[in-house]
Design a protein around this nucleic acid. Structure first.
Lengths: 128, 128
DNA sequence: CTTGACCTTCCTGTTACTGGAACCCTTATG
DNA sequence: CATAAGGGTTCCAGTAACAGGAAGGTCAAG
């Protein structure tokens, strides 16, 4: 398979697939013309990474998950540890964002939003 | 005031303050020795930016908010528009993260986390 | 033979900084 | 007076995860 077809199948942009090769996530063969040639396992691995990325795992975490996936004597505890760490980060982000959201939506509600200059949003940002 | 004192007062690292000067968010004076000299208004503006950043506004949005803050004939509607746009992004992120969280915590629950290789997390990422 | 759709590499830009090197200024101390 | 500590300065590189674009090679069809 050429890169375009793989892009279609995985939903990943060709640019991204080349990048993943650069950083060693996949190692496609090369044809006589220099074109990359992807085997089914390459496509499978790319799909794996794409799903993990969609769950918010960093590329480096994806690499570790992929390594675990490919090692037959893995322990599910190792996978679970990575996932737990990531889940914690997600929950931290959610809570940070929620506190921003609360503050911000409160300020927005209290802002008239007309053509006058008075504004509680600016007031809150500038208050000494 | 020298940059160190400003860093203390605002809580921003000196590096960040220099960066903010680079991109034109503040324009401190310079002393005869080449040191930056910050006036009270500079400190005030930096504090403003620091608070806006804490609410998740991008540096560019901060610049716009600062401009509005400094313009006497501003309309609060313009401020509100920026804040609303940002709030929407925050809410989008929260919802994305929440869906990741749900999927992930479900998978984690179902993973034994022992020394055996079977793992629903990897299974879910690799299922064709 | 040419055209258009692919593919290739390489370089730059993005966001918001952070770390570090190499060097200058000021003040206190032995 | 030399020096050492603790400021400050500039500039360059690196981070994460790609995206955009230029310049050029390849392939199938008409």
């Amino acid at each position: 398979m050429n890169i375009g077809e793989v892009a279609q199948k995985t939903g990943l942009p060709a640019k991204t697939i080349r990048y993943y090769e650069d950083i060693g996530l996949v190692e496609p063969q090369r044809g006589a013309n220099g074109y990359r040639f992807f085997a089914e396992t390459d496509v499978h691995n790319l799909t794996f990474v794409q799903r993990a990325r969609a769950l918010g795992f960093s590329v480096d975490e994806c690499r570790n998950l992929l390594d675990l996936y490919q090692s037959l004597d893995r322990a599910s505890a190792d996978v679970k540890a990575i996932a737990r760490g990531h889940l914690q980060q997600i929950e931290q982000k959610i809570s940070d964002l929620q506190s921003m959201q609360e503050t911000l939506s409160d300020l927005i509600e209290r802002c008239a939003g007309d053509d006058r200059p008075e504004c509680p949003i600016l007031g809150s940002l500038s208050q000494s």
